[in-house]
Structure formats: structure tokens, C-alpha cells
Design a protein around this nucleic acid. Sequence first.
DNA 1: TTTATAGTTTTATATATATCAAACTATTAT
DNA 2: ATAATAGTTTGATATATATAAAACTATAAA
Lengths: 100, 100
Amino acid sequence: MNIKQLSPDVSETQFKQQIFFALSDPGRYKIVQMLYDVGHEMGCGKLNQHVEIDKSTMSYHLRTLREAGITTTRTQGREKYVTLNVEKIESELPGLLENL
Amino acid sequence: MNIKQLSPDVSETQFKQQIFFALSDPGRYKIVQMLYDVGHEMGCGKLNQHVEIDKSTMSYHLRTLREAGITTTRTQGREKYVTLNVEKIESELPGLLENL
DNA sequence: TTTATAGTTTTATATATATCAAACTATTAT
DNA sequence: ATAATAGTTTGATATATATAAAACTATAAA
């Protein structure tokens, strides 16, 4: 018997709510969708080409996603690469990403 | 080949985003979870006993859910009964509700 | 070493959101 | 008829959010 099934951890619920919050914004929805569709990390610049928003707004949304644990960022030179934490998301909300 | 798979309708995406918005709030999350768990309609009063928030706040959240098409409300006498639109939600985001 | 580029942070602003008290509506009970 | 009950709506308020311009940081290129 899975105790998680009976009473989910508060932090798990919080993480889910953060995911929902992230996906409730059209810009962040597109970012997550794009990252999931390409299936691998993506440079901020490239992301910005596909999701058309001001670069400072983009930076704001990417920070929101990062701080929620939804994405991870890697720096190389003066560019940054963003990865969607697919496994982490899938472990809490299986099937969610493929239905965006 | 499913055209929806390739390019989801704007309104479908909007509905998903509304569901995500609804579930990003702890109060509404609990309401939806409760409605899903009981598996049938529930009186506002009973809901209010389980989800402890001010009745006017509850009314506000229930209106948010109703106007987003996430729930349906039925009036009987001076009481109101709320139903979760499970099928509608499942058709856009299958598996979501069971993972809350 | 100067300049260009990628991205962040700050600041300002407008709008959205959550909350609750108080007044209100409609229905049932006395 | 009057009072009680269930729920909504209206203010008022405090906080959160999204947006973008401008200043800033760090790295790469000239």
C-alpha cells in the first residue's frame, strides 16, 4: 500500500500547485510546451525567437520556472541553456506534459 | 492522423490554462480534490465544512470554477449543489484529476 | 582594450487576485 | 408576517503578477 496515495506530502502538493501556476500563464505555457516538444535543452535566445516576448519578461518567466524547480539552467559562455525537468514533473503529474 | 494532436484549438489551450489557474490556488485545489474524491455533487455547505474558508471567499472561488466551466451548479430550494465536470476535464487533460 | 552580445536586475506601472465584512436576495421554517 | 438560513454581491484592501524600459553584469569578439 502506498502511503503517498492516501496522504500526499504538503510539498508535493505545493510543487503541483507551482506547476499549475506556471502553466496558467500563456507565455510560460508556450515556453514549457516548446521545451517539451524539442525534447532537449534550449538556448534562451532560441526560445525567445519562438516565444515572442520582451527579453526581460522572458527572463522573468524563466526565473519563475527555475525557482519553482520546473526547469534547470546551465551557463556556457555568455549564453544560457534551459532544460525542462521532465522526470520530476512526470513523477508528480504523469501524462501532463504530453497533453499540453 | 489527429489534427488536434498537431495544433490544438486556441480555446482548448485556454480551457487548459483556466484549469491550471484554478488548481494553482490552495483553496480551489482542495475544492476540486474534494469534489473529485467524493465522486458526486456536493452541497456548498458541506464543501465549506471540509474546506475551511470564509463563506464569501468560498462563493468567490466557486464562481471562478463555474465561470471557467470546471464545475456546474444546481439550485434546490435555498441550497446549491456543485458538480465537478470530470468528463470535460478528462477529455482535455486525461489523468490529471486522479493525480491531485 | 574597446565594443558587441546575452541575459539579469531594477524600477515603475497597470492590472489581477484573494480575502473578508457588510449588505443583499431568495427560500424555508416558525 | 417574521425570523432564520444558504448563498451571492458589493466594497474595501492588501498583495501578487505581468510587462517593459533602462541600467547593469559578464563574456566573447574586434
